[in-house]
Structures are given as structure tokens and as C-alpha cells.
Computed example of a mutant assay.
Amino acid sequence: MTRFARPAALALLALPLLAGCGGRGSVLTQRPQAPCPRVALIAEAVDLTRYRQGARPDLAAMEVDARMTGFGARCDYAPRDAGLDVTVQVELTAERGPAATGTTFDLPYVVGVTDESEGRVLNSGTDTLRVSFNGSERRTLARGEEMLVRIPGDVRRAAEKVVLIGFQLTPEQLAANRRRGVR
């Protein structure tokens, strides 16, 4: 074989091997894993304690005490190269207090996208997690529904943003959390 024929023959021998690489679902044709922005809980907003309306905030007046214990998050490319889609799901524990008159509580929370370099919130949305206690149950675990957060624009720049999660608190609840500190 000439020195030009040998590489051509090797290429022909490799064709059957390469035939398995094409087509649907092939590793060579799939997009790489989407990058993810940093996702975190807001330290001052992971606790929500609700008291009976008009009562002094003490243990006897507590209706529910909830704490965000974590979250699930996954990232994917938004359709039509519109940026990143971040799906988050909140996890929490809740305790029913002595002043509770019901077994179901709606706990509002917020998910925000921030730009740390500029120190500002770019977008935010709220949702409510419904917590239910069975019978005389005092403590429960709950997981929220998945919430989709789209970060528009260039994927690399979108991945540099930060997604923050916390309870939607009244000014009084936030002040109490700041006084108490992180538990």
C-alpha cells in the first residue's frame, strides 16, 4: 500500500465503529449538561413562626413554627436558547403550636434571582407551601411543588447569577429572626 492508501483503508475500517455514534440520543450529539447558578437559602428567612393574631409572641400563642431544611435544584437549557431553566423544590419541617386551631397551614415563600456583582434582585416570585398535620401529629416534613425559574440571556452569564430561597416574612417576623439569630 502506498503511504496515502493506508490512512484511507484505516478510515474505511473505522466506519462500522463510528456508525454506532450517530443517530438519536448519541453521546456525540447531545448537548452538554447545563451549568447551574448557585442556589442557596437566605439565612435570615429560613424560619417562620406564626402566632395567634393579636397575641404576644410567646410559646402559648404559637400556631406554627416552620424551618426550611433544604431544597432540590436542577438546571437545563431554556427552549430556543432563551437562557437557563432552574427548577427548585423547597423542603421544610414544621411544628404545630399550642395555639393552632387547624391542621393545615399555608406558608408563603419567595424565590429570587440576584446579581451579586451588582448587589440587586433581578427577579423574584412567590409560592405557598401547604403543610398538613394528621390528627394529633405535632411535627411534619413537607416538600413543595417544583417551581421553574427562568434566567434569560446568555447561558454563561445566567449561570453567574444566584438563586435565593426563603420564607416571605412580615417585618416583625424578620426582626425576630434577626434577634434570635440562625438556629
Score class of each variant (00 low, 15 high):
V121E: 12
E137Q: 15
A100H: 03
E145A: 13
T140E: 02
E63W: 01
E116W: 04
T49D: 02
A82I: 02
V182C: 08
S117P: 03
G25M: 08
E145Q: 12
A175L: 08
V39C: 01
A43H: 13
A43Q: 15
D47M: 07
R156M: 09
T126G: 10
R74D: 10
G72E: 14
M1I: 10
L122K: 05
L141R: 15
A175S: 11
V113W: 00
A43M: 11
D76T: 09
R50C: 00
R139E: 15
G25T: 09
L164P: 01
I42M: 15
T101S: 14
L59M: 07
C36M: 07
R56H: 06
A94F: 01
F167I: 04
A8I: 06
E116S: 10
D81V: 03
N134R: 09
R139I: 12
G23T: 11
L41F: 12
T128S: 01
Q33T: 12
L48Y: 06
M62L: 02
G54V: 03
R6P: 05
A43S: 15
T87R: 13
G166F: 09
R157A: 11
Y109L: 04
A100F: 00
A19G: 09
A175P: 11
F4E: 14
P37M: 06
R150T: 15
L59G: 01
E146W: 02
Q173C: 06
G70N: 00
E146Y: 02
E172V: 07
R157S: 08
A61K: 00
P32I: 01
A60C: 01
M62E: 06
A73R: 07
L48P: 00
G166K: 04
D106F: 08
D154I: 06
V155Q: 05
D47L: 07
R138G: 05
G153Y: 04
T2A: 14
D47H: 14
S124V: 03
D47A: 15
N177H: 10
P152G: 14
T140D: 03
D115N: 13
G25A: 09
A8S: 05
V162Y: 13
G83R: 11
F71T: 07
R6I: 15
P98W: 00
C36G: 08
Q53L: 13
R183M: 10
G166D: 07
F4V: 10
A142W: 04
E172R: 08
G70F: 04
Q173S: 13
D115Q: 09
S26E: 05
E118R: 15
L15M: 10
T103F: 09
L28I: 14
A158V: 06
M68D: 07
G112H: 05
T93I: 08
R150G: 11
L28G: 06
E146N: 09
S132A: 12
Q53K: 12
G153T: 05
V113T: 10
D154M: 07
G23L: 11
P79E: 09
T140F: 06
R179P: 00
L12P: 00
A94R: 03
P171I: 05
L92N: 04
R56C: 01
C36K: 06
I165M: 05
A55S: 12
R52K: 13
